[in-house]
Amino acid sequence: MSKSKKIDPLQIIVEEGNKIQFYGAKNQNGLFSNFYKSPIKLKGKIWQTTEHYFQAQKFAGTSKEEEVRNAPGPGTAFRLGRKKDKQFPIRNDWEKAKNTVMYEAIKAKFTQHDNLKQILLSTKNNIIIEHTKRDAYWGDGGDGKGKNTLGILLMKLRKELSAENKKEETQQN
């Protein structure tokens, strides 16, 4: 029996075509996953993962928000956020707000953890793709035809952080 090689989710692997594909926190390029454990502070509270924050914001201002925030793991937070619940319906503006909420979450993650910020910046101009058949909105749909919204938001954040770094360097010189 051969031992399977342990994957380091912090090691960036660039594939052909300058693509950085990810799916899942423990897989290749896993730090980009919303399930990757990197606590963030937003709204005066600590969230275990960006997934906890994102799913909880569907119920902002209700006790369900806290239930999702306190979920034991990102998978549970995901399931709670998707569970149909007449007592706690998803907020009316969710479709308009979800991209902004996701951006808030990833911005917190990559600005509150300097190591993650440096890794994101190190990806330069590579294309970041959430590669999964399970999601054609946040991911690429598995066939590259999905919207890859999460990847696009990560690249937007990378561009902003890179511009901030250049501005700071210019001011220091």
Rank of each mutant, 00 (worst) to 15 (best):
K109R: 15
M155C: 04
H131Y: 13
F32Y: 15
L31C: 13
K145L: 15
L154E: 10
H131C: 01
S63E: 14
L42G: 08
Y137W: 13
L116E: 08
N70K: 01
L42M: 14
K96N: 04
K43L: 15
L153K: 11
K58H: 13
T132L: 03
E130I: 12
L120P: 07
G151V: 01
K64G: 02
G75M: 01
K86H: 07
I129C: 06
W138F: 00
A60L: 09
H131E: 06
K124E: 12
F88P: 02
A97K: 10
K107R: 11
G44L: 02
L120T: 08
T50Y: 03
G44D: 14
I128Q: 02
K64W: 04
K43Q: 13
Q57E: 11
R69Q: 14
I106F: 03
E16G: 04
K159Q: 15
K96T: 02
A71D: 00
W47R: 12
T132H: 11
A97G: 00
D140H: 11
K86Y: 06
K124T: 09
Y23Q: 03
I20Q: 00
F88A: 05
S33P: 09
N18H: 12
G144Q: 04
I129P: 02
E66K: 11
E66R: 07
K83H: 06
I90Y: 08
T149R: 08
G151P: 05
K109N: 12
Y103D: 04
E104L: 08
T111C: 01
H113L: 12
F32C: 08
Q55F: 09
S33T: 06
N27Y: 09
Y53P: 06
K84D: 01
T111R: 00
E104P: 03
E104T: 02
N18D: 15
A136R: 13
D135N: 07
T50P: 10
D114A: 14
G61W: 05
K86D: 15
R82T: 03
M102N: 09
R91K: 14
L42P: 11
K109Y: 13
P74A: 10
Q112P: 02
T50V: 07
A108G: 05
Y23W: 14
L150M: 14
N125Y: 12
G139E: 02
R82Y: 04
I46H: 14
P89Y: 02
S63T: 12
Y103K: 09
G24I: 08
A136I: 07
K156N: 11
D114L: 15
G44K: 08
Q87F: 00
Q28T: 15
L120Y: 05
Y53E: 05
G61I: 06
K98V: 00
K37L: 14
T100P: 00
I129M: 05
K19V: 09
N29Y: 09
L31N: 01
G141N: 07
W94Q: 08
M155A: 09
Y36F: 15
Q112H: 13
Q112F: 05
F88E: 07
Q48W: 04
Q21R: 13
G142F: 03
T76Q: 13
F88W: 12
Q118W: 07
E130R: 04
K124D: 11
F35K: 04
T132K: 10
P72R: 04
K83I: 03
E51R: 10
I119F: 01
I40A: 01
I127P: 00
Q21E: 12
